[in-house]
Design a protein around this nucleic acid. Structure first.
Length: 325
DNA sequence: AACGCACGCAACCGCATTTCT
DNA sequence: TAGAAATGCGGTTGCGTGCGT
């Protein structure tokens, strides 16, 4: 990939400071040598100030470029590869609540970067939803005749605020860890097995779960649709980390992650979306149905339409008067 | 085999926000 | 407290690749 030769460019921020590329700064794809330099430096010293890192690490890159390379590619705790069905569904649901707040969404998808999620949304999910006749921005059917009830909208706003607050909490430790020294980490090209990292904070997606559970309970499942989808999808199939039956507790709260015992776990579970196959196939099927294009194509809004869904939703989950964070 | 097109994704850009002095 | 600097975020670009013709 030879996007550009070495270029020089200096841009001005609105407050006047120079950012971007200074004289002799390199642009374009990173070479393995550059990756190695950046990695070695961060392993030894942590990244500290990104601005001052490049010369210290022997790189002719701007700090911004180094930070991006580290956060989107070199970081040892990044999960790469295909998105699981569970991850995709979570993205869709969070997007419905939060819009294009990719970093907030990423905070709820352990080991995925905001850039990766954004790319996946734009290149896969968005198109699929459009094809299914769903507006990817409003998450409503394109015909516009079916509206979610105001209760649900209110809940969505409330939950969006809560999720953002959670995301901020998740991100706080990152700031404190800027001086963290990483040991024995390698870029994906060098080391296939990621170094173990401390488990991230597992968010509690209360409303999402209620929402999910309600959807499943309202619509019958067509196994053929599901099988057809799985067999044709290029999305890797993973089972829900939180089986639906466990998702909604009687008091409306939820647990912090999977507590159900499961077999055939093939890798260390760090986040809730590892590819773990539950032995409970019923949960597996139910939870992945929504991902099936066939399901959506054959989807018929039941009697009462979206409003009935919203009403059921409101019955199950009564929010506090107002969110306070 | 050659060409064109669509797709996927890494990386850049500019603005916003946060932190520092 | 204000201005500067650093960092974060979301939108966009453009190259490599795979596939169909």
């Amino acid at each position: 990939m030879v996007r550009s030769e070495e270029k020089t460019k200096v841009t001005k921020q609105n407050n006047g400071n120079t950012v971007g590329l200074g004289v002799g700064m390199k642009k374009g794809p990173w070479t393995p040598e550059e990756d190695q330099k950046l990695l070695s430096y961060i392993q030894q010293f942590g990244h500290g100030s990104w601005r001052s890192l490049p010369p210290k690490a022997g790189l002719k890159r701007c700090g911004k470029s180094c930070r991006l390379r580290w956060t989107n590619y070199l970081r040892p705790d990044i999960k790469r590869g295909k998105f699981t069905l569970e991850e995709e569904r979570t993205i869709i649901q969070l997007h419905a609540l939060l819009g294009n707040r990719w970093s907030t969404i990423a905070a709820h998808l352990p080991r995925r970067t905001d850039n990766e999620i954004k790319n996946h949304w734009n290149s896969h999910i968005k198109k699929r939803m459009t094809k299914m006749g769903i507006d990817p921005m409003t998450h409503k059917p394109n015909n516009g005749t079916q509206n979610l009830g105001s209760n649900l909208n209110h809940m969505a706003q409330w939950e969006a605020a809560r999720l953002e607050a959670e995301a901020r909490l998740v991100q706080k430790p990152k700031i404190k860890s800027t001086q963290l020294t990483y040991v024995n980490v390698s870029p994906p090209s060098i080391q296939k097995t990621p170094t173990k990292v401390p488990p991230p904070y597992l968010p509690c997606l209360d409303v999402l779960k209620v929402w999910q559970g309600n959807l499943w309970s309202n619509y019958s499942i067509n196994n053929e649709s599901l099988q057809s989808f799985i067999s044709t999808s290029n999305v890797s199939v993973a089972t829900p980390a939180i089986p639906l039956s466990n998702q909604v507790e009687s008091n409306g709260s939820c647990d912090q992650g999977p507590t159900t015992e499961h077999n055939d776990q093939t890798e260390t579970q760090i986040g809730p979306f590892e590819e773990i196959r539950y032995t409970n196939d019923e949960n597996f099927i139910n939870d992945n149905l929504l991902r099936s294009p066939d399901f959506w194509e054959e989807f018929v809004v039941p009697d009462g339409g979206w409003n009935s869904l919203a009403n059921n939703f409101a019955m199950i989950c009564t929010p506090p008067a107002s969110p306070v964070f």
